[in-house]
Design a protein around this nucleic acid. Structure first.
Length: 848
RNA sequence: GCCCGCGUGGUGGAAUGGUAGACACAGGAGACUUAAAAUCUCCAGGCUUAAUAGGCCGUGCCGGUUCGAGUCCGGCCGCGGGUACCA
């Protein structure tokens, strides 16, 4: 009997699938279609174990759907633009393009041996001119429909390198290379009008039944619809009033001061007039642009000297402060502060000794009191509605009053901001417009697309060793004739955010070689994505941007109406995490070490030279943190099926798993065992026995349970059942015919997870054709029900015994049997039960 | 800071509000073997007990709802993800 030898069987079956075109998506026949998509990878250089887990899950679905009679589309590509390629070029020379395509080659080379049922004929990378040229066409169509515009926005500015930094490149408020303190600076940039769709994107969340509730909740909070009051504070100096927006108008009697953003028009006016204010504002603008940095920054304020009148009491004057925690992007960039009921206002008021006046609750407070708006509270200084009411009711009453008295308006606002897509970087999709002195911003002509990135600068490769955007200092690329008037003009040198690339790739996969962004007939057939699979880290940005893009593509005629929500079902798989090993470099910034360089002793980690490293447990695998685990060694040692089986077993797919190297060997042992058991059965010649029926029942139970697991993303549960079924098959003394049926079924049930082994077993057991094409087994319902069940007996909720009863035994009979049970008799001690609960087929609980 | 999750044996984890720990890993005992590997059989939450039976404790911590809570509710603690230029 031959042994399980993945090294020989895996390439054999991969070749067989390729030759048969098993996974090439086809529209043939009148089969239903199924589109399964995993979030495509960034070509970082090597695939890691998280990719294997992600793509194996998608492959299980794809192969399962193929065997249940679907035309399956299961494509793969690369999200290939982005900073790491430029960083690599900066660090070790070379060109982002060669770096990226080399990485893609490597990764495809690593993925193919895993035997994924992918349609490789559709593969593309977003950095292919063929792809990004169509993206430029989309941009031009969006521009024409008013879905793109320009405005000022704040970026991280490194004053030493004279360059824009990504948030990731700002570490503790300092530039990652220069170490200089970062400033916030305004630039004119391109924006998608996603905010026009705030309401629709919010409401449509309700239709996404097959999305995780937590993702919908996160998007709901991100879109952040709020109802509040907008009103003007009259200035005592007679200048134009300051308009504020507040979601808590009920706390107006607790007003302490009016706060304006450092980027507010009044702040800028004062900055121009007053050098002292200018200096203080410069201080406020230090640090990064992230919400976290802004929120956590020490509260800073400047008293403008301006005074305003309280809308409810003309004799009450409030000071106007510039405050660094107020965002210009949200509301009107100005607020009234109520320190008693807002933690940030409280911190600010305490620091600058401004009044703190409670509006509801206790009159004597030591921290901001912020109960949920649905809670009823007692108003000490209410001015609208009842004395005792919920925050929501009080807000409504305050808005009504303001509108009735004519000093304010109830308005609905969204937190969602327009999507800034401009990036001052080389390795991205060029924005296809030209800046002309006389014509202004001129769209490039479609026939000139793609506007390709220049590979070199004249005769030499583009230089990435100097900070800044090489496109900006590339005259032959940058200087062009205006497409409209022909006069000398300059190409836009900003490129697009890489989120643009990933916002429509799912649509492109339906017709990856089309001469237009999509082919409507193909999109009509294959869209929507029936099952999208990816990491929870994309819950907000990528998924929201994609939802917006699908709408924009529908409006511009590139997608059918049904695709305005492009992903019918979403599954967010957990991440594969791994500890980060960190020390601190001479410059005070963190240095990350590879796991193989760290020795673990008593839960502490040490470098070879004995330096202790800080261990940050369970962190997302990230190339920049050097904690990525490479699956190649496992594949080499045990084969692809073992790797696939292993990443699916044990952990529920939605949960994070901490990577450990043990266990792979065990998975391999199990597959060898399955091979051995099946090979023996293939050769067996035993007449039917009285155990046949029992094995038949086990087989049908396995079909049922494994199928349920696959359908519900419970792959770990499916695998647990498969272990159980394998053990049952191994122990069974049934005849050869039933055993062969059971073994063939086992091979089929395993085939989405371990396709190569299953093909081999299928062949060995005399199955017809490829197992990949064999119809999925169907469980015989009549063989699933057991005649008798074990009923646990509880006394006061604690298990005290059990009894065997017929499955459909009447409730009264069960009660009678339970009361006669030894443990119950003892507990009752002659008395009557207080209560008797019988859950048929489940449990009996006696309360004494 | 804010939003969203997660927390169960030595380990990964199972459990429509109904027998907590399925299925595995690591471990232990035995069979086979000259021996080892491989394979096969069995044991296994903690405490109590010579052992078994029995009992008690036990799903991060504190409290609540319920006949019954890992599961639902409230409050903490810890860890992770996102936080709009990492992808």
């Amino acid at each position: 009997m031959s042994r399980y030898d993945p090294a020989s069987i895996e390439p054999k079956w991969q070749a067989a699938w390729e030759e048969a075109g098993t996974f090439v998506a086809s529209r043939e026949g009148d089969k239903p279609k199924y589109y399964v998509l995993e979030m495509f990878p960034y070509p970082s250089g090597r695939i890691h174990i998280g990719h294997v887990r992600n793509y194996t899950m998608g492959d299980v679905i794809a192969r399962y759907k193929l065997s249940t009679g679907h035309n399956v589309l299961h494509p793969m590509g690369f999200d290939a633009f982005g900073m790491p390629a430029e960083n690599a070029a900066m660090k070790s020379g070379g060109h982002p393009k060669t770096w990226t395509y080399d990485n893609i080659d490597t990764m495809v080379g690593q993925m193919k041996p895993l035997g994924f049922g992918l349609d490789w004929t559709r593969m593309f990378a977003t950095c292919d001119p063929e792809y990004y040229g169509q993206q430029q066409a989309l941009f031009l169509d969006f521009l024409e429909k008013g879905l793109v515009y320009r405005k000022n926005a704040v970026v991280n500015w490194d004053p030493v390198d004279m360059t824009v930094l990504a948030n990731e490149q700002v570490i503790d408020g300092k530039g990652w290379r220069s170490g200089a303190e970062v400033e916030r600076r305004e630039l004119t940039q391109w924006f998608f009008k996603i905010s026009d769709y705030s309401e629709e994107l919010l409401e449509a969340l309700d239709t996404l039944d097959n999305w995780p509730a937590k993702v919908r909740l996160m998007q709901e909070n991100w879109i952040g619809k709020s109802r509040g009051l907008e009103f003007g504070f009259e200035r005592t100096d007679g200048e134009a009033p300051i308009t504020v927006y507040t979601t808590r108008p009920d706390t107006l009697m607790g007003a302490s001061f009016v706060g304006i953003s450092p980027d507010h028009a009044i702040s800028k006016e004062l900055e121009a007039q007053n050098p002292e204010v200018a200096a203080q504002l410069a201080e406020m603008r230090k640090g990064g642009t992230t919400a976290e940095a802004l929120e956590k920054a020490e509260k800073l304020g400047i008293d403008t000297g301006i005074r305003v009148k309280h809308p409810l009491d003309p004799n009450w004057e409030l000071p106007v402060w510039i405050a660094n925690f107020i965002l210009m992007d949200y509301g009107t960039g100005a607020i009234f502060a109520c320190p008693a009921h807002d933690p940030r206002d409280y911190e600010f008021a305490t620091k600058y000794e401004l009044p703190i006046i409670p509006v509801f609750g206790e009159d004597d407070i030591t921290e901001a009191f912020v109960p949920p708006k649905t809670d009823k509270v007692t108003y000490l200084r209410g001015f609208a509605g009842a004395t005792e009411q919920t925050g929501d009711a009080a807000v409504d009453a305050a808005i009504d009053l303001a509108e009735k008295d004519g000093w304010g308006n109830g308005v609905t606002k969204f937190r969602l901001r327009d999507w800034g897509l401009s990036r001052q970087r080389y390795w991205g999709c060029p924005i296809p417009v030209v800046h002309c002195d006389s014509c202004g911003v001129v769209p490039e002509k479609k026939e000139n697309l793609p506007i390709e990135l220049p590979f070199d600068n004249g005769n030499e490769e583009i230089d990435f060793s100097i900070p800044g955007n090489p496109l900006d200092r590339h005259p032959t690329w940058r200087d062009v004739a205006c497409p409209k008037c022909g006069a000398p003009a300059k190409r836009e040198t900003d490129t697009m955010d890489t989120f643009v690339d990933s916002s429509w790739y799912y649509a492109r996969f339906t017709a990856p070689r089309a001469q237009t962004p999509t082919d409507l007939a193909e999109a009509e057939y294959w869209m929507n994505v029936d099952q999208y699979i990816g990491g929870i880290e994309h819950a907000i940005l990528h998924l929201l941007y994609s939802r917006f893009f699908a709408r924009a593509m529908n409006i511009t005629g590139h997608l059918p109406d049904k695709s305005r929500e492009p992903f019918n079902a979403l599954f967010t798989q957990g991440m594969v995490t791994h500890a980060i090993y960190q020390t601190t470099g001479e410059d005070g910034r963190p240095v990350y070490h590879f796991p193989e360089d760290v020795e673990l002793r008593d839960g502490k980690g040490f470098l070879k030279d004995g330096t202790e490293v800080k261990i940050i447990p369970s962190a997302k695998m990230s190339k920049s943190k050097n904690n990525v685990v490479d699956p190649v060694e496992i594949i080499k040692a045990y084969g692809a099926d073992t790797a696939r089986w292993f990443v699916l077993s044990d952990s529920p797919p939605e949960r994070d798993v901490e990577w450990t190297a043990s266990g792979a060997e065990a998975a391999n042992k199990h597959l060898s065992r399955v091979f051995r058991i099946c090979a023996e059965i293939a050769e067996g010649d035993v007449a039917p026995t009285k155990e046949d029926e029992a094995l038949l029942r086990e087989t049908h139970k396995a079909i049922h349970d494994v199928t349920m697991g696959v359908e519900s993303f419970g792959f770990n549960a499916s695998i647990a059942k498969l272990y159980g079924f394998t053990n049952a098959l191994h122990k069974s003394r049934a005849g050869s015919e039933v055993k062969r049926f059971a073994a063939k079924t086992l091979a089929q049930l395993m085939s989405p997870m371990t396709p190569h082994l299953s093909e081999e077993l299928w062949q060995l057991l005399g199955g017809e054709g490829l197992i990949a094409n064999a119809p999925w087994p169907v469980a015989d319902e009549s063989l699933l029900v057991e005649d008798t069940v074990t009923l646990p007996i509880q006394i006061n909720g604690k298990r005290r015994g059990e009894m065997q009863v017929a499955r459909d035994l009447a409730k009264e009979e069960v009660e009678k049997l339970a009361l006669a049970h030894e443990a119950v008799v003892k507990a009752l001690d002659g008395g009557q039960p207080k209560k008797l609960i019988v859950v048929p087929g489940r449990i009996v609980n006696v309360v004494v």
